[in-house]
């Protein structure tokens, strides 16, 4: 089934931050806790689905020469919409993510999907593609944020897990911790892929 494949590729071959190494700015910057990572991921997913659907709807009328400008306007519109909705309903999350919410506009995953997928496929497939890639991105950010929160603060989604004797590595929630964790996750991913390849 093609529709299932379009959905699951966002978790496997096209898992954005770990496979394609795309969208690293928010991946590194906001994943200090699992909750922040998840919030950022879901905001991006929303923009991705809306932008994909709209661009796919208009793929036949957007002239080739101005397509990038059109995509950027569409994406920026939904990003500002997300920003307003977040301010209205999730203000504390908005305060924590700060400047990285407006910066979703320049997240290359979104423009990438618009150009590579939504502009060539039907609305249904584009929506599924956006959902898959977006949830894959959310999953990656939550995983990264979860690992950093667990080691750096000793909790997960603000629930303390490590017990009283645990001394948090404050290093993990600072910027270098993000690079180290991402590097280790990329190593694990590549190692798993190479294992699969040698077996096949």
């Amino acid at each position: 089934m093609r529709i299932v494949r379009e959905f699951t590729k966002g978790f496997s071959t096209e898992l954005a931050p770990f496979r394609l190494v795309l969208g690293l700015c928010p991946t590194l910057a906001v994943t200090t806790t699992a909750e922040n990572g998840m919030g950022m991921g879901l905001a991006t997913t929303f923009v991705l689905i809306c932008a994909n659907v709209l661009i796919s709807l208009m793929r036949k009328i957007i002239p080739k020469k101005v397509r990038i400008a059109c995509y950027i306007v569409v994406i920026a519109t939904f990003v500002v919409a997300v920003e307003l909705l977040m301010q209205a309903y999730f203000y504390p999350l908005y305060q924590r993510l700060g400047i990285f919410v407006p910066l979703i506009v320049v997240n290359c995953i979104i423009l990438g999907r618009a150009e590579a997928f939504a502009s060539k496929n039907t609305v249904l497939f584009s929506a599924v593609d956006g959902l898959g890639i977006g949830l894959g991105f959310t999953f990656s950010l939550t995983l990264l944020g979860g690992l950093r929160e667990l080691l750096g603060v000793g909790s997960l989604f603000n629930v303390p897990l490590m017990g009283k004797s645990f001394e948090p590595f404050s290093f993990m929630i600072k910027a270098p911790g993000a690079f180290v964790t991402l590097g280790l996750l990329l190593f694990v991913m590549n190692y798993l892929t190479s294992l699969k390849r040698t077996r096949a």
Partner: peptide, 26 residues
């Protein structure tokens, strides 16, 4: 080209203007 970009921008402006008005109290 001019027509399509204008339509898209008009759509963006309407959506955001409406959203901003609707949510400003909240």
């Amino acid at each position: 080209m001019v027509l399509v970009t204008t339509i898209i921008c008009a759509f963006a402006a309407t959506l955001l203007g409406g959203l901003r008005n609707g949510l400003s109290d909240r």
